[in-house]
Design a protein around this nucleic acid. Structure first.
Length: 828
DNA sequence: ACCCCTAACTCCTCA
DNA sequence: AGTTAGGGGT
């Protein structure tokens, strides 16, 4: 780890960059030509001629594709260390030969999909051949996580403190107030261990995220008899109850995720009620419906009608959505009043909503709940930390244990975080956290020019940190912020792990295959059938589909029945296609029956499924990113390997519930040391890292724009609190003065929250104040709204001496190597 | 029916 | 800026 922030900020010169910058200037005139018209796929002399002609004499030929920005081309060349992806010959450091090939079907220029070729190779290869090269050279980017396992092992050796011991040993009901880093999860696992030691076997541990559940299982794995303990999210447990005793739905019902829920809402709005989706925005309406259902309320007027239609449609389709899981699970429990577990433990209790709380009350008289009102960050999902008070009221004899010994962060980090949260003035369990590790440097607030500078700052520091000792995380409010970091880390050659949730299970190929699997087990899941009706293509086009849906609606029957008894008017080819599909489904079911007696492994059945449906053929024939898709299917098969063939439903449930890539990490094909973790603050909850960068500490981002509109910033403040308390040794808060959102550069102001942290608790480093002439000139043209002086004034009113000192500090750093800190190499 | 390109929409967080 | 749905061409 670095000795001080100053040394970390002294970024050594990278000569390569200087050369690049020069080439930008030299070639600016040429770029106007390419940008005018030339298809960058065909960047030959002829193409340039055509472009010139088009630009000067008016376009006669057909319009060509917009050229790929030079900075991207150079970036890709850099990533390949300037070697041609095909022949390996060194690419001259001149953009004219940086031919870059895209891979995505939709023409996306996403960086990971691009490859650079030398001019020779580019001339000789056809488009298909170039894609072939891409196919063979692309490497998976996801990395493995080692640091967490190490952390878990280290912690086991330490003994419990007095408060922790109380929390472990006292009989329930208990409420534990556990500040960040006070060993909350550890207390939970120790208590389970203790219960097991006493011979208790009926134990349920509830978490809010799959990540937390997985971690708990991981920790319990080494404990004796722990296989009798149930661990899962509220949703998972409810779903199990429903699967066990389906009353509201027919057996084999499917689960809808967020996307499906919104799609269904749209269907209700447009098709069933004939309303305008522009006026009744499906995602908005869905959120309202969800909110109402979680509060067990009804909606009025049109919204009420949509809600009714939505619920009816769920029932008709024999599916449940996320809210149903809780609602129906609770209903079932209320009816049976059967308690399946003697001991129920809840993690992150402050994040439970009212349904979950009712659920907990039904489950146990002596619950054990751990929570911290300061870390309540799921209010938007209906979580209500008032449940803490309800708990105290409903269980008057409950014991209260407060954990305030922090084993994670240095006192400097805790102090800054405490100042932030104390300024909230909200009702809370007041705890003063005590650090148990040696003191460290004061957290640093770094002010940067834009999101690229922000990302470059992180990448620069990360690339010089010792990878054996330091785990590093960048946390941010919105997923969209990850892109800049990906780009820069890639460029600096820093391995990273992106925890972009749902990415995997929302891939088309994954959903398609899961749809087939769903069809195998549940007869009439029409949404799955609809999905694969013409995938792979079997001549059942839009016309035929409409005809089928119409017929299905008329008979009030299912689509599944309709394809077996197709209506008249279909093309012969479509009819044949339907026959094929029916044959495939029947074949799949036969194969399943046969497989159940021979192999036990679900992944082998999945392989058969891919054969029978010809889906792997279909995927591999895809020109653009067939390899990626194929790899994803392999990944899915890896996941399936943990299940038996008889557990298809469980597998599908888990896929529906796991929107988290953590489950994937362990099966990742290539494992390299991850250096930097990129994740949202929500996803970072419960985790810890040596070095944490909190990106985008700006008004509009943290607090988020929507929260500013609503006027309630308390949850946003807690978010920052959670983010800061993830850090063990070193904490950086980053804020940019401008940020690119929706293709527009906006001026940003530092987060109002920063003003609540006294300056003695937060070092300021300004990497914007001293800029190159070029940049400052441009900024004047752009018309800034927030000058640096107003920033400091807002941060620390009336303390000018300190301000000056800080600014000089920044200036010193600047003088050491101004160009590296402020100049954007790829600035257009 | 399938392919390609353009236009319109989107980006808050999770089960 | 990135993604995707739908229009137009074949």
């Amino acid at each position: 780890m670095m000795s001080s922030y100053a040394s970390g900020l002294l970024l050594s010169a990278i000569p390569r960059r200087v050369a690049w910058r020069r080439s930008v200037t030299m070639c600016r005139h040429r770029r106007t030509l390419t940008a005018a018209a030339a298809g960058w796929e065909d960047d030959s002399d002829e193409a340039r001629e055509r472009a010139l002609a088009a630009a000067v004499g008016g376009a006669t030929g057909r319009r060509r594709r917009k050229s790929l920005p030079l900075k991207i081309r150079r970036l890709v060349a850099y990533r390949q260390k300037y070697a041609c992806a095909s022949c390996g010959v060194l690419l001259p450091p001149n953009h004219q030969v940086d031919h870059v090939v895209p891979a995505a079907l939709n023409g996306s220029d996403a960086l990971p999909n691009l490859q650079a070729l030398c001019l020779e190779c580019h001339k000789q290869k056809t488009r298909e051949q170039r894609h072939e090269i891409l196919r063979t050279t692309q490497e998976p980017r996801r990395r493995d996580d080692k640091a967490r396992v190490v952390a878990v092992e280290k912690e086991v050796a330490v003994e419990l403190n007095e408060a922790q011991r109380k929390a472990v040993e006292l009989p329930g009901p208990i409420r534990v107030v556990a500040g960040p880093g006070t060993g909350k999860t550890r207390v939970l696992t120790s208590r389970i261990e203790e219960l097991l030691r006493r011979g208790e076997r009926s134990i349920l541990a509830l978490t809010f995220t799959n990540k937390a559940a997985n971690e708990m299982r991981e920790r319990l794995a080494r404990v004796e008899n722990s296989e009798s303990v149930s661990v899962g999210t509220f949703h998972r447990v409810c779903l199990s109850i429903l699967r066990h005793a389906p009353e509201e739905r027919a057996p084999g019902f499917a689960c809808y995720d967020q996307t499906a829920m919104i799609k269904l809402t749209r269907y209700c709005i447009e098709s069933l009620l004939g309303l305008d989706a522009k006026e009744w925005v499906p995602s908005r309406v869905q959120a309202l419906i969800s909110e109402a259902r979680n509060a067990r309320e009804r909606l009025d007027g049109t919204l009420g009608r949509i809600m009714e239609a939505y619920e009816e449609e769920l029932k008709r389709r024999n599916v449940v959505d996320f809210d149903d899981m809780l609602l129906l699970g609770l209903k079932s429990l209320e009816r049976t009043r059967r308690r399946r577990w003697r001991h129920v433990l809840v993690d992150e209790f402050q994040d439970s909503n009212s349904l979950q709380y009712e659920f907990l009350k039904l489950l146990s008289d002596t619950p054990f709940a751990v929570g911290d009102s300061d870390q309540a960050i799921y209010g938007w999902r209906g979580a209500d930390y008032d449940n803490l008070r309800k708990f105290d009221a409903d269980f008057p004899g409950r014991a209260l244990v407060t954990l305030d010994q922090n084993y994670r962060s240095s006192q400097q980090i805790l102090d800054a975080a405490a100042s932030l949260i104390a300024a909230a003035g909200q009702p809370r369990d007041d705890i003063k956290l005590q650090a148990n590790i040696p003191p460290g440097p004061i957290p640093t607030l770094v002010r940067l020019r834009d999101q690229d500078a922000e990302a470059r700052f992180v990448a620069d520091l990360a690339s010089r940190l010792d990878e054996e000792t330091a785990s590093i995380a960048v946390v941010y409010r919105t997923n969209a912020q990850s892109r800049a970091f990906e780009t820069q880390l890639l460029r600096h050659g820093v391995p990273y792990h992106l925890a972009s949730q749902r990415a995997f299970f929302e891939r088309r190929e994954v959903r398609d295959v899961l749809a087939y699997l769903t069809l195998v087990v549940s007869d009439d899941d029409d949404s799955s059938l609809d999905r694969v009706l013409n995938v792979p293509p079997r001549a059942v086009g839009e016309k035929s589909r409409a005809l089928l849906l119409d017929a299905a609606a008329k008979n009030n029957g299912s689509l599944a029945a309709t394809i077996r008894d197709p209506p008249p008017g279909l093309f012969p080819r479509a009819l044949k296609g339907l026959e094929d599909l029916v044959g495939i489904i029947d074949d799949l079911r036969r194969t399943l029956a046969a497989t159940e007696t021979t192999t036990k492994d679900l992944s082998s059945y999945l392989a058969r499924l891919l054969e029978i449906t010809r889906y792997d053929e279909y995927v591999q024939a895809e020109v653009d990113n067939g390899v990626d898709r194929w790899r994803n299917l392999r990944e899915l098969a890896n996941l399936a390997a943990k299940y038996d063939v008889s557990q298809i439903l469980e597998f599908l449930d888990d896929c529906a519930l796991v929107q988290d890539q953590d489950a994937l990490e362990t099966t990742e094909i290539s494992k390299t040391t991850t250096k930097v973790h990129l994740l949202t603050i929500h996803a970072a909850k419960g985790l810890e890292y040596d070095v944490v960068f909190v990106a985008g500490c700006e008004d509009g981002l943290l607090p988020h724009f929507y929260a500013l509109e609503e006027g309630d910033l308390r949850e946003e403040r807690r978010l920052l609190y959670v983010a800061m308390t993830r850090a063990k040794r070193r904490l950086y808060l980053l804020c940019a003065t401008t940020r690119l959102t929706w293709g527009i550069t906006r001026d940003m102001k530092p987060s109002t929250f920063l003003g609540d942290i006294p300056s003695r608790q937060l070092d300021l480093v300004d990497l914007v104040a001293t800029t190159t002439r070029e940049n400052s000139a441009k900024r004047h043209k752009g018309g800034k709204t927030s000058s640096s002086s107003s920033y400091y004034a807002s941060l620390k009113p009336g303390d000018s001496r300190r301000r000056q000192g800080r600014r000089q500090g920044g200036g010193k750093v600047q003088r050491a190597k101004p160009s590296d800190l402020t100049d954007d190499d790829f600035d257009d």
